[in-house]
């Protein structure tokens, strides 16, 4: 900790960096929440660069004591504002959206590779083969359509003869399957979720007792699926022969 005592008064570089870190951290947190909930895989290349630039400005705000925090913070705010403006413009104006974000490009149409479209995107055949492999397609002859999305991912539609058979094809009846509801997490019962699935605590206690669990606080996770099955995981896992995936005895 570098503290300079000047005539009995404290000038602390560490303290200044800590205060600026708090400013940078919470500003970044607020701004990224404002910029939206896009997942990393959904980001366009520009969104990615935007994130890096804003992050590096927050880092400079924290540790670059050769200038005040203000210009860095203004830069951070301006880039965020520009990002928000672009988001708003592309949301409201379809032309701008196509112009800025680009359009998905068909790179395989009816089983034929679109070399011209690929050349325009500077997208190589090896890139295509690689992205097809990522999609578990090892034979390009199986592909009817492949579309390169604006975020760089490849969407693939296989020829019908190579698509897996579904229950619908076999005329097998199916049951509705929705999203499971968490009833207990870390020993805490969610009454709100219980109410949502028309159950109560006494029902939950009975179900837990059926599984040999006396106290809900012993439960790490309990989820009720739409078929009415209750999945319960307790803190005490009784695994008789655990599988060790490590290849080094440790200690780590």
């Amino acid at each position: 900790m570098q503290i300079m005592w000047i005539g009995g008064w404290m000038l602390s570089e560490t303290l200044v960096v800590m205060v600026r870190a708090v400013i940078g951290f919470f500003t970044l947190l607020i701004y990224t929440r404002m910029l939206g909930k896009q997942q990393l895989s959904q980001l366009t290349y520009f969104d990615y660069i935007l994130g890096i630039t804003i992050g590096s400005m927050a880092a400079a705000l924290t540790t670059d004591l050769s200038s005040t925090a203000w210009p860095h913070w203004v830069g951070l705010t301006a880039w965020t504002a520009a990002g928000l403006t672009m988001q708003w413009v592309t949301l409201k104006w379809r032309f701008a959206s196509k112009y800025i974000d680009g359009e998905p490009t068909v790179v395989i149409m009816n089983g034929k590779i679109m070399e011209g479209a690929m050349r325009k995107l500077r997208y190589r055949a090896s890139d295509l083969m690689e992205q097809l492999r990522v999609k578990d397609v090892f034979d390009i002859g199986e592909v009817e359509f492949a579309i390169l999305e604006t975020n760089g991912t490849l969407s693939v539609l296989k020829k019908t003869q190579f698509q897996p058979v579904t229950r619908s094809d076999m005329n097998i009846s199916t049951q509705y399957q929705g999203i499971g509801t968490e009833l207990i997490y870390s020993g805490v019962i969610f009454d709100q979720n219980l109410k949502q699935v028309y159950r109560d605590r006494s029902w939950l206690d009975t179900e837990l007792r059926k599984k040999g669990i006396q106290d809900s606080r012993d439960v790490f996770l309990a989820v009720l699926d739409t078929s009415g099955n209750l999945y319960v995981d307790t803190y005490r896992d009784r695994v008789e022969s655990p599988v060790d995936t490590g290849d080094f005895p440790g200690p780590y």
């Binding site: 000047i6 005539g7 009995g8 008064w9 000038l11 570089e13 303290l15 200044v16 050769s66």
Partner: peptide, 19 residues
């Protein structure tokens, strides 16, 4: 003068350039 500036330093260090 040095004492006076040192007193002010404690207050302004978070918003002034260290240099």
């Amino acid at each position: 003068l040095a004492d006076a500036f040192n007193r002010v330093t404690v207050r302004v260090q978070f918003s002034a350039q260290l240099h």
